[in-house]
């Protein structure tokens, strides 16, 4: 098949391979920094939601609206809103952070709300201050839900970063625009495959991390 030959030819060039590695690293950076930041933000906001009902309604409503904004639009409007450079990778990072946070706030708030009352009561009775109780009891107990959200977030970030190629910051997405202009399938196929592999690897790591953080989930399993 010519596609296979094309891919071999494409990958045969050392400069191309180095460029691919650069794009892959950019892609990792652009998709994972927002993930980490949003976990922190979502936990903070989730806590607010949990404590104040007013905030809850507002934030949940807002997070639904955020999802209706096309990613391309969000990527490009950020420089106009906060004065970053038009080609700054921060634009993509902030946009993805907004999406991922919106995705995570609701499950985190619900997970915190779902911690059984007798558990928090027990912690309080043991003399845990609210902060300590939150960090050592409520937060760990909501890890499974948080982890499920983070997995969806990581996959969708990794796939969304590519759209940034249309504004010049796209990680592996650049392969799609380049390949398209040249009518050349090889870079496009390689871009798709690398994106899938990256998503898979990150997902596996997240599962490992989750299992690490929830040792009690293994208790009682054969």
């Amino acid at each position: 098949m010519t596609a296979v030959g094309d891919i071999a030819k494409y990958l045969g060039d050392a400069g191309t391979r180095a460029a691919l590695l650069d794009m892959l690293l950019d892609h990792v950076y652009l998709s994972l920094v927002p993930l980490v930041v949003s976990v922190v933000l979502a936990v903070l906001l989730g806590l607010l939601c949990h404590r104040f009902r007013q905030v809850n309604a507002t934030l949940i409503g807002m997070s639904n609206i955020v999802y209706t904004i096309p990613s391309l639009a969000l990527f490009a409007i950020i420089p106009a809103l906060i004065g970053t450079q038009v080609l700054d990778p921060l634009n993509v990072i902030i946009a993805l952070t907004v999406y991922t946070t919106a995705l995570l706030v609701r499950p985190v708030a619900e997970a915190l709300a779902a911690v059984p009352a007798h558990v928090t009561a027990a912690a309080t009775a043991m003399g845990f201050r609210p902060l300590r109780r939150f960090l050592t009891v409520e937060l760990p107990l909501s890890v499974p839900v948080l982890a499920a959200g983070v997995r969806v977030g990581s996959v969708s970030n990794i796939s969304l970063v590519s759209v940034g190629a249309l504004i010049g910051t796209g990680g592996l997405g650049t392969l799609f625009t380049d390949g398209f202009r040249q009518r050349y399938l090889a870079p496009i196929i390689i871009g798709i495959v690398l994106t899938l592999v990256l998503a898979l690897v990150v997902d596996l790591l997240l599962v490992l991390l989750r299992n690490r953080l929830t040792p009690w989930a293994r208790v009682g399993k054969p």
Partner: peptide, 19 residues
């Protein structure tokens, strides 16, 4: 279904256009 989620739409659309 998770793998499908990871498929970049831009990549898929350009790929299918050329095909």
């Amino acid at each position: 279904s998770n793998a499908l989620r990871a498929l970049p739409t831009l990549g898929l659309v350009t790929f299918l256009y050329l095909i």
